[in-house]
C-alpha cells in the first residue's frame, strides 16, 4: 500500500454510527455502523425492505434518522437535541448535499425541461456555471452517455434506459464526491438494463467518485464493486470483497439469499 492509499483509508468519506431508523414502528435500520473510505465502490445487496435504499436516502437527507450520527467528509449531519438527533438547518446541509449526487430508480427527470436543460439547470442554480458554459458541459456529458442527439428532446420522448442515462449525466454534471445509485435498472425493460450498467462501469473507471449502488443485479455487483454489503432486517450481515462474499459467504442468510446450500450441518 502506498502512503496515499493509506491516508485515504484512514479518512472515511462516509460514516454511519449507531444509526437506527423505523417507519411507523417497524425497524428498518437497527443500530447500524458503516464506514466507507473515499473512492470505494460499494454494492448494497439484500432482500427488499432490508434497509439498503434507506441508507442512500438518509445520506441524501431524504430521510432522517431516529438515533445515531451520520458524517459525510467528516462533517456531522445531525446535532443532538435532548437526546434526539436533529438534522442540521437547511443552510448548513447544502454544503453536505453539494458533495453527493443521486440517481433514482424512476429517474426523476424534470418533464418540462429538455434533456439539455435537465443537465444544465442544476449547474446554473448551484452557481457552478453560467448558461453557455453549463450547456456546453451538458452536451459533453450527453456525448459521454451516448445521447448527444437527444439533447433537445423532452424526457417523455426517451426510452427508460435513455432517461436513466440522462439522469446519470445530470448527477455527474455537479461533480459530486459521492454518487448514490438506488436500483438504477429496476424500472427498465430487461433489454435496456445493459446500457445503464455499461455506463456505470465507465463512470466507475473514470470519475474516482465514491459510489454506493443498491441493486439486484448480482453478477454486475460482483464485477463492479470493490466491496459488497449484504443487508438483512436492518443489519449488515456480510461485508467483504465481492469474490469472497459471493463464493464463500459466512452468514446463513447470505447463503440463502444467494441460493447456496447451508453450510456444514
Amino acid at each position: 500500500m502506498s502512503k496515499m492509499e493509506q491516508k485515504a483509508v484512514s479518512r472515511p468519506i462516509i460514516e454511519l454510527s449507531n444509526v437506527s431508523k423505523a417507519f411507523n414502528g417497524v425497524s428498518v435500520l437497527d443500530n447500524l455502523n458503516l464506514v466507507i473510505p473515499k473512492g470505494q465502490k460499494v454494492a448494497l445487496l439484500g432482500p427488499s425492505g432490508s434497509g439498503k435504499t434507506t441508507i442512500l436516502r438518509i445520506l441524501m437527507t431524504l430521510e432522517t434518522i431516529d438515533a445515531g450520527q451520520v458524517r459525510v467528509g467528516g462533517q456531522s449531519m445531525y446535532e443532538e437535541q435532548s437526546g434526539v438527533p436533529r438534522l442540521l438547518p437547511e443552510s448548513q446541509l447544502r454544503s453536505v448535499r453539494a458533495r453527493i449526487g443521486m440517481v433514482f430508480q424512476h429517474f426523476g427527470l424534470f418533464p418540462h425541461l429538455t434533456v439539455l436543460s435537465n443537465i444544465a439547470l442544476p449547474q446554473i442554480l448551484n452557481g457552478q456555471a453560467r448558461k453557455a458554459e453549463a450547456e456546453a458541459r451538458a452536451l459533453d456529458l450527453l456525448q459521454t452517455v451516448g445521447l448527444a442527439d437527444k439533447a433537445h428532446l423532452l424526457p417523455d420522448q426517451l426510452s427508460g434506459g435513455q432517461k436513466q442515462r440522462v439522469a446519470i449525466a445530470r448527477a455527474l454534471a455537479l461533480q459530486p464526491d459521492i454518487l448514490l445509485f438506488d436500483e438504477p435498472t429496476s424500472a427498465l425493460d430487461p433489454q435496456r438494463v445493459s446500457e445503464v450498467l455499461d455506463l456505470l462501469n465507465v463512470i466507475g473507471e473514470t470519475t474516482g467518485a465514491t459510489m454506493l449502488l443498491v441493486t439486484h443485479e448480482m453478477e454486475f455487483a460482483r464485477q463492479f464493486a470493490d466491496r459488497v454489503l449484504f443487508f438483512d432486517h436492518g443489519q449488515i450481515v456480510e461485508d467483504g470483497a465481492p469474490d469472497l462474499v459471493f463464493t464463500n459467504p459466512q452468514d446463513h442468510r447470505t447463503r440463502a439469499f444467494l441460493g447456496l446450500p447451508a453450510r456444514g450441518v
Partner: peptide
C-alpha cells in the same frame, strides 16, 4: 414526490425548487 427528491439531490433551495421545477409544471 420524485420531483422534490430530485431537487433535493441536486441541492436546490426551496425557492429554486418552487420557481424552476414546481411552478412551471
Amino acid at each position: 414526490k420524485d420531483q422534490y427528491e430530485s431537487c433535493c439531490a441536486l441541492n436546490f433551495t426551496r425557492y429554486q425548487t418552487f420557481r424552476y421545477i414546481v411552478l412551471p409544471q
